[in-house]
Design a protein around this nucleic acid. Sequence first.
DNA 1: TAATCTACCGACCAATCGGTCGGGTTTTTT
DNA 2: AAAAAACCCGACCGATTGGTCGGTAGATTA
Lengths: 215, 215
Amino acid sequence: MREAAVVARHPTQDRILDEAERLFAHHGFAGASLQELAERVGLSKSSLFHHFPTKIELYAAVLERLFEHLWISIESRVDRQAGPWTRVGQTIDLLIDFLAERPTTAKLLLRSMIERDFEDAGLTPEELRERHGQYLARIIQFFIQALQDGTNAGVFRPQHIGHFIQSVVGATLFHFASGNFGEEMIDGDLYAPKNVAARKEEVKNFIRLGLEERK
Amino acid sequence: MREAAVVARHPTQDRILDEAERLFAHHGFAGASLQELAERVGLSKSSLFHHFPTKIELYAAVLERLFEHLWISIESRVDRQAGPWTRVGQTIDLLIDFLAERPTTAKLLLRSMIERDFEDAGLTPEELRERHGQYLARIIQFFIQALQDGTNAGVFRPQHIGHFIQSVVGATLFHFASGNFGEEMIDGDLYAPKNVAARKEEVKNFIRLGLEERK
DNA sequence: TAATCTACCGACCAATCGGTCGGGTTTTTT
DNA sequence: AAAAAACCCGACCGATTGGTCGGTAGATTA
């Protein structure tokens, strides 16, 4: 039933995952109702359990697919041969494009990092890592590598990489998840193309200022 | 029953609010159980309704107290006569101190900005603003004023203030809410004093680089 | 064609949810 | 001392929760 392929996995399951992604993002794991999910997909509630054994497994599948898509998007389109600046910039562009594609993504990602639904449900950290943690780890590792290459080559100023990533991730994820607050801040729709482009420039500018060697 | 004073409001209600803050932060609005809350406080569930009419009102009271404390902390301790650099730096220090005091605060603040529990519960945006939005607005306005003063005085580089604030808030709130992810990033306890101090420097350094006029 | 498998459903379950109600106890006010 | 108000409780409510089970229609395989 479960396959590694990303495309054309299983039409019904993908429809379930699409709607589940929206519901989990909006209401959180506890707040999302399987009854409502079933209605939106056009199935009976019991049919959901034919495709996914439990609610927490469904949630894990949603996140797994999300992280997998993100990782593939980055891994397949960032030029590994390019210089550190290019790699860092491309990664940011792809991350923001990914978040901008669907307004639920950033909220769901933020939730998955903030909340402890899996731990509460009794999953061990090892199982967690096996499900979707591996993709997140790869993405971060990819970014860390670019930063270290830049520092070693002397084009990036030395910095605390962990703190730096926390700032970048925070400035990116939070922005696209910030709902009404963010819309008041930038006075417009967070997901309007022109505002998405502006956000890209803001984050990349921040990175440039943070990494650039000062003369 | 409801008073404006912050200190010594009502001992039992404050104990309820303390525990409720923890539960809402950990499990979200939907995921927090009033039964569990009552047990932790040492009351019966029905007694909770003596102090707060509904769950959503309790949640609103938690956030109201939180925002009120934060606003008072900033308003009463930042030197309004000081220069823009000092004011911005002091505000960041106080915000981070506030978040570092209790590990649940950042998560709860993030949730309150990401989630739509109040809208789902039927509260109008006007009621929302009246409850705690006013404090948030004041805090943001305070920060905006410092940024504008600096720009007008020519010591800050002109920038998109909204995007800048999104970055600062994201880099700050996310960090202290990021749980396991953040602890792996900085390889230690997010709330250990030395790591809190390091975060202060990181954020202020980021602000300095972002605002400083280049020669 | 017979057997198997996939997808789906309605009926049902125990548990928990937020919330109500009537009454008892203690403290404060008059 | 009497009245009122504040505080707290157990019993109870309808609704909803995630999840189970037996069965059926249709496609696939042997």
